[in-house]
Design a protein around this nucleic acid. Sequence first.
DNA 1: CTGAAAGCGCTTACAG
DNA 2: CTGAAAGCGCTTACAG
Lengths: 342, 342
Amino acid sequence: MATIGDVAQEAGVSRSTASYALSGKRPISEDVRRRVLEAAEALAYTPNAGARALATAQTKVLGLLARFHEDEFAPAMMQYILGVTNTARDLGYDTLLVTEADGVRALRRITDSRMVDGVVLMNVAQDDARLPVLRAAPQPGALVGLPDDCSGLDVFDLDFEEAGRVMVDHLHRLGHRELILVSQPEHVVERGGAYVWRLRDAALERARQLGVTLHAVYGESRQPAAGRLLNESLDAHPAATGLLINNEAAVAALPTVAHARGLRVPEDLSVIGRHSADFAATFSLPYSFVESAPDRLGSMAVRQLVRRVESPAARKEPYVVRFISPELVSLGSTAHPRPRSS
Amino acid sequence: MATIGDVAQEAGVSRSTASYALSGKRPISEDVRRRVLEAAEALAYTPNAGARALATAQTKVLGLLARFHEDEFAPAMMQYILGVTNTARDLGYDTLLVTEADGVRALRRITDSRMVDGVVLMNVAQDDARLPVLRAAPQPGALVGLPDDCSGLDVFDLDFEEAGRVMVDHLHRLGHRELILVSQPEHVVERGGAYVWRLRDAALERARQLGVTLHAVYGESRQPAAGRLLNESLDAHPAATGLLINNEAAVAALPTVAHARGLRVPEDLSVIGRHSADFAATFSLPYSFVESAPDRLGSMAVRQLVRRVESPAARKEPYVVRFISPELVSLGSTAHPRPRSS
DNA sequence: CTGAAAGCGCTTACAG
DNA sequence: CTGAAAGCGCTTACAG
């Protein structure tokens, strides 16, 4: 493989001149510049990443830490990852994807060894053990997901509180007075998945204000349990006319459950999910939903991260906590209520 | 951050001794070794990845090139990726995930710059433009997916021919004499997705040998088209008693379609899919299927790749083309046939 | 506008 | 068993 020395020799200049001609970091005579560029072209010169990283203390690589819990719905993760990798590339960065179970260890490894210029943490828990490690690291960090303590890091998440209110408001406005909200399983909350209760508590609060009865239940995250729990919930609350689902596995199971029960949507039951448009298309879900915008969140996290990486000024700016406003995408699965039980 | 020089100083030895004590690559007195290890521990020393890569010409990073076509079913990809990243980590490697559209450019970038020690290509097409680039690269490469020309690379794939035969055999043995096979869309074939016709042609051949009528149709890869096409196929061949599905989107749509048609499986229709167990669980699919083993394929590709990376001897070995034998996982969706049409 | 030199942080022959 | 030195391939002050 050609080195900068080969290029310099081929162009008949010094290595520093070759380097400057390629980077444009100082004035170079037109003639020399041309010869260097031609030589680089002829030799198919590409700078050695390790050498450059060593000299510049920049790797042009971002770390992406994703966690996969047995009880979580893996398909939803792909969109977040693509949001990160594609945006990173647009900004000139490659992405080191780390999926190992021990996130703390992994984070130490990639930051201490200077493999990455910055880190995006996905699936952040309220009391995430990776956060202190990331704060102590020399690289900046961005989170997707809202922890209890946001200090020292940029945080991006869907506004789950507002999502809960939007769902309740929408059905209340249509005349519904009794709703069911299916969340993630309880142990997701226990593990620190704050988005579960953020949406739920805001929905409950709003329901109370509006005089709406809201039955909040924990869902399941695997099949067929997710479908079974839907059935139980519908059985338990026969007077409910609206169903809110903050749980990808549950909403994926709903078409089958509705069919089996002979339940028509929205005639017999109004439904609003909380997932992504891509998810809805993939699973062919005919339900209105609050867009969770995984690719946009990943993209936003990367943009902010790269700003901090590249600008010492940006590095000093106050940290941000930015929420994406929930957008209700209507697929016609809500209507005025009609009592379900005869 | 502490460097090897800091460690050496702290331990009162030279940098080379510190390095050797840490790597164990030459005999070190017990006393010195202990002092070095303590110093490294105390200073939380981690080698700088760029410096090490420069000195050793090894990055301990593997490249993973994944492609996402608009018309492909993204959720299936996550399992392949996890197979690669998890196995890589087990073997001491991190994974650079590259998803950009221009795979040729991306491959050039990561190989020419020596960012990676080896590359796994996913979603390989028959006449994949990335292959010549990978062959010319100094790093070894492994493929998931079978191209026309396998030279110079290790290739791993499901034995789709055998999968087609297994499906036909199984239903023939149960007494079925007319089957429908739903494949991927035609343009997936045009783009070079050989697995489509590999399974189909083998199934057709076997059906002919057995005197079974097999209607092979191209499917759709998005909803709701996938479901619609299922309906059309069932309408077009009312006497067919068995359905073979080599298409994730189609099999995901089948529960809804079957429900809508009042079709009981396996009483009215026997069904065999070709997908992964994880996919079946995620989508709650109650159909027997030929396991496509995405994580195992990813894992196998990485293991072979790392062998070549680490051993000059292995580097010289002949290249392999290794097929995973299709395993038929029964979920009870096949039975003796009963005429569908009255 | 250009070049010689130092330095980034490692590893590993070469000496002793 | 240990150390001084060279070298991996870059970038960037320092000189001119």
